[in-house]
Nucleic acid binder design. Structure first.
Lengths: 166, 166
DNA sequence: GATAGGTGCGCAATATTGTTTCGTACAAGC
DNA sequence: GCTTGTACGAAACAATATTGCGCACCTATC
């Protein structure tokens, strides 16, 4: 394994595991063109080096009763680092908030939320988010339909990029 | 398996696989408190019934050279269904666009994008997104830092919900 | 209340996969 | 040209996945 840089086989492994994270090691080895033992060693190394941060089953939220998905744009009154951190900490504690990203521009944070129905989201919004100190403005947008939801990273872009820079 | 409704063991299985999608079946069985064979049968059924839509390795985008993450708010000139579908189709074809959600309100779509650097995103923005017919307005926000990025669904909320409604 | 049908469990056996061990090949540096 | 480091693959072994039963439980029907 070349220090910390990835060779084409490593990238292929990452791409395969991103698209099917439960693939057996022998199947993976077959696909990337090496035998099982070195393939497993590579996977372990990629995990240890942090290229792979985990494996997750993709669950159908609607089937489970989470009918509602909402994006919330949040503006804070104070953007001092302490206040930013405090808000991030809040978000981590709210289970309905699945993602929280700090943004540049007029909006400070964007939150991706799920909820069983509109009224549960509303009570979260009015009972939690809007009453949080330092939260100045919240603009919410309901997701009408999902058009695309691909995980992670586009490996084809990566490969094309490495070709041209080589 | 009760028709299409899930029992507590099924929900535990989903929760466990969401948090570690590569767990072995024997480990999973141990955690949910049944033996391996029925556990595997349940997993297969959950897959077939669509509760589990897939398994994915979580890849560190930054480590792989995707330094930039951007949210793009897109407004279209026409919201006729044909035009909406056409735009969704475009999004599906763009590898830098990882997610695309149709929203209510003033903005029609929100796109989550990744790119190796700011200039690649800029050239996607000006060369692709802004030149797409029917795209009227695009407002982009750079992600300064990620504060939370949990996958899927909050199972603790689900359990609490089922308790009270029982 | 028997009893038949359905559902889901666990044990045991087998097939498949994961993991370790070890010998070999290739490349870089002295 | 020798050493060292790195990564591969074959083989052996350990663990897991998967299949094939038989048993218990629940429910409905008579």
């Amino acid at each position: 394994m070349a220090g910390t840089r990835l060779d084409p086989i490593d990238r292929k492994i990452l791409a395969e595991l991103q698209s099917d994270g439960r693939m057996t090691n022998v199947e993976l080895a077959k696909r990337v063109g090496i035998s099982a033992p070195p393939c497993l060693r590579r996977v372990r190394t990629l995990e240890e080096q942090g290229y792979i941060k985990g494996y997750h089953a993709e669950i159908d939220a609607r089937e489970l009763g989470f009918e509602v998905q909402v994006f919330a744009m949040v503006g804070l009154a104070s953007q001092a680092e302490t206040d930013l951190s405090r808000f991030e900490e809040k978000c981590r504690a709210w289970p309905l908030v699945r993602e929280c990203h700090m943004l540049n521009g007029e909006v400070d944070f964007i939150l991706k939320c799920v909820a069983p129905d509109l009224s549960s989201f509303q009570s979260f919004l009015t009972g939690e988010l809007l009453t949080t100190p330092n939260v100045e403005s919240v603009k919410t947008s309901l997701v009408i339909r999902g058009s695309k939801d691909d995980p992670g990273v586009p490996f084809d872009v990566l490969e094309k990029r490495l070709e041209t820079s080589a």
